[in-house]
Amino acid sequence: MTTSIKQLPDIEQVLSGNGACGGCPATMALRIVGKALGPNAIMLLTPSCSVASMGMTPRLGYNWPCINICFATAGSSASGITHALEIMQEKGRLQGELPTVFTWVGDGGTYDIGFQALSAAAERNDNMIFFCYNNEAYSNTGVQRSGATPRGSYTTTTPSGKRQQKKNMALLMLEHNIPYVATATVAYPGDLYDKVAKAKSISGMKYIEILAPCYLGWQFDMPETVQMSRMAVRSGAWLLWEAENGKISFNKPSASIINGKKDAAPVDEYLMKQGRFNRLLKGPDAAQRIAEIQGDIDREIAFMRERAQITI
């Protein structure tokens, strides 16, 4: 049973008046994450929009101890802090419950630049939660292509649309045999809250990826952030699932798409609302481009359906 909105706790870890854009999906998601993690946590940030959102020194927009680190070192820095905390507890210099160590990293710091440190941390199974808020481009530097950018999407470095498919990063992390992997998005806050609360209770490496539709990068209207996130799930372009000890289970509403009870909505409406696809879907090859994107989504759904059958 998913936690309802009225059951969410009052605690606010993202403070009003931070430096994020209006309608930012990253702070939207981080608020829900904060409700699940509570104040006893240490946050690590690599260069991303969330670092800019912290505000100006000597003020801080997040109510956690925050550490800004190099782009490629999210996994290794979090490992170091976890080990230090464990040793401090062993020596009696730290009393009470250990703080949760978590990283708040964009898709560039996870898919591309930070991947080797993340992979190594996952292989060591260090006790941390790795959050990736995925806005499908390097939005902080002005929207460049990343490993998470889907096929056919406009970015400043792919002016005629990206020609390659995006990676399935959550599945890659699952193949590291870590205790918990999950995907979530901002339109389903109860689902996100449950996943973070579950990850907090498990020891070892946890990976949670949150789809965060950035209105500047995706080029849609600012108030439609949550709608876009919902459309991504309903069209099957983003699947909500979690895997505990390697067993994949799908969450509503992706579960009904996977088990065939409900067809995924056609991808056209989702694409046409976003300027990053829309601007390239005006020429004579529009139908072929849409078919390619739809093909990627169908293949991903079929693959994940079969992958979930493997429970060994």
């Binding site: 008046g17 209006g22 309608g23 930012c24 608020r31 829900i32 806050p189 600012m222 949550v226």
Partner: peptide
């Protein structure tokens, strides 16, 4: 729950206009 800025009071549904960025979500 969806306010990215945490400016809406949960019980009274009042808005803190000092910090509200007017995103319209």
């Amino acid at each position: 729950v969806f306010c990215p800025e945490a400016v809406i009071d949960r019980n009274e549904i009042t808005i803190d206009y000092r910090y509200c960025k007017g995103c319209g979500v």
